Amino acid sequence: MCESNVYILDANGERSLIMESVDKIVPGEKDVYLENIFGERKTVKGHIKEMALVDHSIILAK
């Protein structure tokens, strides 16, 4: 399986889960579009900070 969980970093550097089983990510200028295998969609303000695909995690920052 190639899905990843997406987290966002808060001001303290703690990460919070935004969405599980994400298989589509489209970065924009000021936001990131996410879509998971269940058809759920979400747009989050921020940018991609780190992608650890072996660990199936993607970290976003505001």
Rank of each mutant, 00 (worst) to 15 (best):
N36V: 01
E40T: 02
K62C: 12
M1A: 13
H56N: 15
E35C: 09
P27Q: 11
A11D: 10
K49C: 09
R41G: 06
F38S: 13
I59T: 15
L60Q: 05
A61G: 12
P27I: 10
L53D: 00
I25A: 02
Y33L: 06
E35I: 04
I58Q: 02
L9E: 15
C2Y: 00
G28I: 02
N5C: 11
M1Y: 09
I37L: 11
E40C: 02
N36Y: 00
K62G: 13
V54H: 07
M51G: 03
I8S: 12
V32D: 03
S21M: 10
V26R: 08
S16P: 07
I58L: 07
P27Y: 06
E3L: 06
V54C: 04
I58T: 05
K45V: 12
L9F: 13
A52G: 08
A11L: 10
V22T: 00
K62Y: 13
E40V: 00
G13A: 07
Y33V: 04
A52E: 06
D31F: 02
N36A: 01
D23Y: 01
E3I: 05
M1P: 07
K49S: 11
I25C: 03
G39Q: 05
E20R: 12
R41A: 11
D55M: 15
I58R: 04
F38A: 12
L9I: 14
E35S: 10
E29H: 03
G46D: 10
N12Q: 10
S4V: 01
F38Q: 14
S57H: 13
Y7W: 04
T43L: 04
R41E: 15
K42S: 07
F38L: 14
V32Y: 03
E29C: 00
